[in-house]
């Protein structure tokens, strides 16, 4: 390990990916894609965590990543279940059609 790559590179990539996910959440109207973008954000954080852990030589960050992956999977499962149920009632997964509340 010659240490040419610094932690900056990883963090830059992670934060750009995080922001891409964020942008997707704001811009997309398809709920499926919003869920995917949320996953992207979580993955970006995971990358940052692992990089931090590796560069500080501390294992806890990696373990936190492990939990983050678990949580993300659970969230996706629930999200897709709700989406499917909602699709059965409303026949759409686009945001502009899923807006009964607040009227």
């Amino acid at each position: 390990m010659d240490g040419v790559l610094g932690i900056e590179e990883y963090l830059v990539v992670a934060s750009i990916l995080f922001c891409i996910g964020l942008l997707g959440v704001i811009l997309r109207r398809n709920v499926l894609l919003i869920l995917m973008c949320l996953e992207l954000m979580l993955n970006a954080v995971n990358l940052a965590l692992v990089a931090f852990a590796r560069y500080s030589g501390n294992m806890d960050g990696v373990i936190l990543t492990f939990f983050a992956i678990t949580v993300a999977a659970a969230e996706v499962a629930i999200g897709l279940a709700i989406l499917v149920a909602l699709y059965r009632r409303r026949k759409s997964i686009f945001l502009q059609d899923l807006n009964l509340l607040g009227r």
Binding site: I26, L27, N99, G102
Partner: peptide
């Protein structure tokens, strides 16, 4: 608060 998820986001 008119329910638009994107506005909220």
């Amino acid at each position: 608060h008119r329910g638009g998820l994107r506005v909220y986001a």
